[in-house]
Design a protein around this nucleic acid. Sequence first.
DNA 1: GATGAATGAGACTTCATTCAT
DNA 2: GATGAATGAAGTCTCATTCAT
Lengths: 190, 190, 190, 190
Amino acid sequence: MPKQKISEKELIWASLKVFRERGYHNTSMADIGAACGLNKGSIYHYFPGKEELMKAVILEMHEHYKQKVFIYAYDERLEPMERLKRLGEFSEKIFLSSNNGCLMGNIALETNSVLPEVSLLIKAFFSDWIAAMAHVFSKKYDEQKALALGKESVAEIEGAVMMMRIFEEQDYLKRAHQRIYQKYGVSETC
Amino acid sequence: MPKQKISEKELIWASLKVFRERGYHNTSMADIGAACGLNKGSIYHYFPGKEELMKAVILEMHEHYKQKVFIYAYDERLEPMERLKRLGEFSEKIFLSSNNGCLMGNIALETNSVLPEVSLLIKAFFSDWIAAMAHVFSKKYDEQKALALGKESVAEIEGAVMMMRIFEEQDYLKRAHQRIYQKYGVSETC
Amino acid sequence: MPKQKISEKELIWASLKVFRERGYHNTSMADIGAACGLNKGSIYHYFPGKEELMKAVILEMHEHYKQKVFIYAYDERLEPMERLKRLGEFSEKIFLSSNNGCLMGNIALETNSVLPEVSLLIKAFFSDWIAAMAHVFSKKYDEQKALALGKESVAEIEGAVMMMRIFEEQDYLKRAHQRIYQKYGVSETC
Amino acid sequence: MPKQKISEKELIWASLKVFRERGYHNTSMADIGAACGLNKGSIYHYFPGKEELMKAVILEMHEHYKQKVFIYAYDERLEPMERLKRLGEFSEKIFLSSNNGCLMGNIALETNSVLPEVSLLIKAFFSDWIAAMAHVFSKKYDEQKALALGKESVAEIEGAVMMMRIFEEQDYLKRAHQRIYQKYGVSETC
DNA sequence: GATGAATGAGACTTCATTCAT
DNA sequence: GATGAATGAAGTCTCATTCAT
């Protein structure tokens, strides 16, 4: 990329914000261009089309989570509860910094019956997230139980983020994380 | 055809399915027409525009929930736990009968920054649902705790429904409801 | 016409007002229906279509002018100048009673290149009007001069009515008529 | 095509012809596209919509008149009568070169009750024209008389142009101009 | 004769994509 | 690589007309 006005990463992150806020179908290439100082047509030098861009955004987000969030689940130097808290803190940081909810959740609902390739990538993201949570829970519970807790944890977070967006109330997410910590901790004391 | 080919209610329910599956922006008036055997132009005899139709769909769904679901929360002849179960059973029936998740959730995320009037109606729906859940919890907990439990219950259901849609796994919803029942019952035993 | 809700004449006069105000292409059948308390579809019991209705309106207006205005031109009991004044007074009465100018002029410009049958009827109206004016002038001038004066008189009135509509100033028409009276009278004194 | 297929001016003048011939409401974006070799959608690269295009057309025409016609009214090197003649010759040249009358008049009547912003621009055009004529008449008459003569001159021309269009007779305009010249000259000899 | 829902063509407009410069 | 005009399909919506009741 010799003289690109902006880097591919910059384009992706700018697109991410627009997609998260406006959704996939309600975002035009012109919107994205406006968000990153590029002309509509120039986006096609970076990606072959809108759907491919959407996929790149999802992959980038997925990678970001892997490196910045999920990674704590596998950090064997940390206590399991500490890992859960790190996971939680990062999620919170990400979700609370935007009013527009979770890109993955937002786009998932919109593209699920309609753009299978996009759906698949989103599914992979959530699978990884669930696996990370389950991995932590597996320190205390058997595989099956741990997986179930991973699933319900992610579901609760996504539910909370949806409600946060609808009601503009940040409590939802914090409480969801507290419930998750309790899933791990409660049986210790109970 | 002298009188309406289909009733307004039929149009609304047909639209509901299309909107739930394809989302708001990716649904065209032609899609809706095709779904109910009407020419796209004819829909304007029923509603003045797409957004108004969307609003009617949401109001209809809201009314449906009030009469078929929320009502159990206020049925004083039933035990609180029985009420929770009725609420749960009906939610499950509704959500499991479609592969496309929750209309309200799907549309909420897509319209939130973009169609304020629609957002408002969706917010009202979720407020009612939370109030119904909270009302049941208030039989056992104080107002504040009951409200918090109502909020987290609805959030968990919506999170579960989202995951259900993404993974096509029905377990999510059943487990969410079990967790909700436990919210009411667990402290009895613990 | 046994049980018509309104008479054909009433429909025509109601349509006339709408066409004069909104023009031909910007008037919908629904507009006309609204103006006469009839349903859109019912108009087709009176006239086979919008263009035919327009033609009927023009013919009615033409007939009205013949009977109420042009007739004075041929009333041999009146002095020529008196005839001119009667013609003028009636024109003024008609044009000043609406803010929307002259139906014939308004529609003429809009349909001229586009609806030949309508144009033809409008042409016939203006021909009659010119002939009436010319007939009066022929009392004093030769045929050719009288015809020229008729033409310029009608043109001046139409120009004045156009300006009246644009500027909402009623002077234009009165002055135009004064000039017309002078066309007859001035050479008497000059 | 990297740069514009046609210039904005070319689009405006092509549109002008179509609007003058077919009127505002009966002209479609496709008509305009066809008239200038552009796809109807492409017109939106030049103007944000049909009404804005109409306004640009009117402004262009106004500007054209200012520079090519009205200017003579203020050329103090010329005799007043000479100025009137120049004004007349240019008007004639413009109006006789098309069979479709005066854009301003045609559009004025159609948009008067319906597109206020367009009406305003048309009004401004006629005001300028009247002012130009009045300026010439003010060389001989007092302000008030000069203004009245300006108004009636413009009205007469517009009336003549309307008749010209209806009857396809070019005499109207020439005679109207002769009458205008007489307005200036007649009292010299009479 | 009146109704008003249905139709289907066509209106204005948007937009993902292409491509000449 | 960036531009932005052009495209053509598709979107929302309007409307003259038809027709079953």
